[in-house]
Design a binder for these strands. Sequence first.
DNA 1: ACCTCCCTTCGATATTCATCTAATAGCGAG
DNA 2: CTCGCTATTAGATGAATATCGAAGGGAGGT
Lengths: 125, 125
Amino acid sequence: MPRTLPIVNTTAPMCCSPIGEHSEDPAADALQIATRLKALADPSRVRIVQELACCEGHEMTTTEAGALLGVSEATANHHLKRLQQAGILAPRRDAQKVYYHLDLGALRQLGAVLQVRCSANCHCS
Amino acid sequence: MPRTLPIVNTTAPMCCSPIGEHSEDPAADALQIATRLKALADPSRVRIVQELACCEGHEMTTTEAGALLGVSEATANHHLKRLQQAGILAPRRDAQKVYYHLDLGALRQLGAVLQVRCSANCHCS
DNA sequence: ACCTCCCTTCGATATTCATCTAATAGCGAG
DNA sequence: CTCGCTATTAGATGAATATCGAAGGGAGGT
């Protein structure tokens, strides 16, 4: 899975918003964006991100996530992995423990996609 | 479904980001956010929003959405309705046609949730 | 060596949901 | 009123996935 969201180009001349940017392959961009949104579109995973976003550098283990969510460790691990695969979380290993922390850049970039800034002087077709 | 995202309070004193804001019921907030993200977490629906976000005031009918996505009108209608239920799209009826357009505020608000702005002077527990 | 955590994987189950076809409903035109 | 176009609903199906319990694996401590 690519690490970049090709849609977000805040410097390019634009008619409108990042998500409305004209692209070579809008369907591919949509798939790209939807895939990342899907990784976050779950109450348990939003809850994890909430917790990690509270303070800079906060970390969380599988066991802690399980306790926080009230689910089994297997389930908690599943959610952490999904967030990691989307590039939103990154792991840090210390001995037998694995600490997960936020990738703030990835989260911000995903949010930027939704920051629509339409204007009247649009030169779409 | 409530029309507001209680999480986003850009004026309140904060330790970190909107999503990390301390709340009475973080789980409820997470559910709230996840529900809206889920409405957008689909390639077809992102594609629709892309198209509508291109130019201010752009509108789309069920038939047009079906043609754009290459799916049946029933499926297109399903996606439009899901986006509408999430408050992202709003309908405008004209005779027998129904034109859907973006609710820019709702989209921006959802994006704002992900604009994490952590700082070192955090006073979390 | 053994025991104990912690993390991860596996297989199963139940639910959600994207999609289709077919049918129904609404509105305008002739 | 009937025809045609648009929108919507209903029911069915297949795929994705959230969840669990159980089992496996790795690293430290005693």
